[in-house]
Amino acid sequence: MNLSGDIGIWVAAILTLAVFSFLWKDNPLFRLAEHILVGVSAGYYLVQYAYSAIYKKLYVPLFDQGNLLFIGCAILGLLVFTRLVPRKSWLSRYPIAFYVAAGAGYSIPSGLQTRVVKQMQTSMLNFLDQGSLWTNVSAFLLFVGVISVLLYFYFSAEHRGAFGFFSKIGIVFLMIGFGASFGYTVMSRITLLIGRLQFLMGEWLGFL
């Protein structure tokens, strides 16, 4: 055992243990750690937001590079602050409408291309040019799976007959998919704990 002499490591270890105390039950120590985290994170984010949005992306183009077009977005940006004044909060709708509509606009063509066209194209073409018989069968199964999952999510017709049969196959694929997601979720959560125990047993207590 080689206990750390770094005060930062000790602060981090105490906070880690305070958070873990929740496993016993909710308690003031946990709530204290929770609120320290909320405050410190919000402070960290606020500095990053202000520095990146106001200094880097507004001050530098406007004053260092003389790009006067940024006066318009400075005005729109400042209008967002009216959100904090109930009587004038409607003014904040202009910048928010701009932001949301611009995002909606560019997401339509590229979203369709990326998520719909490319995915359908791959499903249809892949099983035609694979190597062995087994990979061909598997690729065909993938194609059937995609179609049946889509049919399962089609709720404008009653799931009966051939349609009902395929939607049931869709459920089989979905369940296998959700099972795989569950396995990966477990993997993810365990890793997060490994990270904390490595810190406690290694950097703090010096066992590792």
Binding site: S107, I108, G111, L112, T114, R115, V116, Q119, M120, S123, S138, A139, L141, L142, F143, V144, G145, V146, S148, V149, L150, Y152, F153, G170, V172, F173, L174, I176, G177, F178, A180, S181
Partner: peptide, 19 residues
């Protein structure tokens, strides 16, 4: 294969929904 099929089906649905 089966997982990719399920995720792709959902992905296409999400793509249409987002649009």
């Amino acid at each position: 294969y089966p997982n990719t099929a399920a995720k792709r089906g959902i992905l296409i649905g999400v793509g249409l929904g987002m649009t």
